[in-house]
Amino acid sequence: MFAVEMNNVSVYLGGRQVLKGVTLRVPYNTVFVIMGPSGSGKTTLLRVINRLIDLTEGARVEGSVKVLGFDAMSYDPYELRKLIGMVFQVPNPFPHLTIYDNVAVAARINGVAKSRREVDEVVRWALERAMLWDEVEDRLHDYPHQLSGGQRQRLCLARALAMKPRLLLLDEPTANIDPVNARKLEEAIVSLKDEVTVVMVTHFPHQAARVADYVAVLYDGRVVEQGPAQQLFLRPTTDIAQKLLRGEM
């Protein structure tokens, strides 16, 4: 059994084929890193998993996708998304909600917490797991624009965690934040894998080396190599993977 199982998945956006027969297996409770140069289809791949791809008009998906045992293509996407948290490339906390409400809204919508006390607890738990609690403990009712970029991104992680997801999708979460915050986020991610399965897109080889259990290399819409991280980092078999891991792509 796998958390995510893709068989021969192709995605067409408009007339363009973005994914070309991707086959992928993500084991439970691991950090699975997808690497690849920009434009290789990494983000699209994540958006297939939680079906955010539906929002793109004119997108077409072929092949089979199993997520947490459900057939993602026929399952109700709104039910599916309750099981999957996501953090985006650009920090996008809701600007009209306070720090507290940004996290609480995710917990309430998914029925994770109902009473005021339960919500309080979940918010605190999520912020702690996102390693943000100490910094915002006494300013929970401030708005996100008063936070730094890195703090905002960790707030987004907390929002995703507050749903108590079983699968967490991270789309280059450290691409737009400073190194110190990036390190904190990485720490948080690694500490999470006992509770959730993490699928993370990145193009920093060092970051991948630090957090990954498994790695898949995506190039031009195809998976050119995948396997346990150690094995792949020590002996990359393809030219593309070698270049990518050396940071040359």
Binding site: D54, D76, Y78
Partner: peptide
């Protein structure tokens, strides 16, 4: 590609 809820 549109789910039932989107149609509703």
């Amino acid at each position: 590609m549109r789910s039932k809820r989107d149609k509703l």
